[in-house]
């Protein structure tokens, strides 16, 4: 798995490539924690290249989402394939996160929410 991170203005784009499982989730957790520690983050977690997620991966994302919201920031998701969408909806997390089809729509959605 690889994680790439880019920033534009106050928005952080985190792309997760590969499997989000017990072995790899701690790396995503560390990346998100460092952004959250910096304060008031707007984070887009891009799952376009993510092939797999388990409950540990979901736990990591929910925890970061909660912390971002507590700091008046936000964490949104984009690019979920059909299987990932199914996993999110199975436990109602599709109603917790703002989920966009791709990165561009996530940016648009965040800008619309700011207005």
């Amino acid at each position: 798995m690889s994680i790439t991170q880019t920033q534009s203005d106050n928005t952080h784009h985190i792309s997760v490539n590969g499997r989000l499982d017990q072995a790899q989730t701690p790396r995503l957790e560390a990346t998100l924690t460092s952004l959250l520690d910096a304060g008031r983050p707007i984070i887009i977690v891009d799952l376009t290249e993510t092939t797999y997620i388990n409950s540990g991966g979901l736990r990591c994302l929910v925890s970061a989402w909660r912390q971002a919201r507590q700091q008046d920031g936000d964490l949104v998701l984009c690019g979920l394939n059909e299987r990932l969408q199914e996993i999110f909806s199975m436990v109602g997390f599709d109603k917790v996160f703002a989920i966009y089809p791709d990165f561009e729509e996530a940016i648009t959605g965040i800008k619309n929410n700011e207005q």
Binding site: V62, W65, R66, R69, S89, M90, V91, G92, F93, D94, K95, V96
Partner: peptide, 13 residues
Amino acid sequence: PPSSQNPPQADDI
């Protein structure tokens, strides 16, 4: 479990 029909609420996450 939570579900799409009974999703976890933001306030009690």
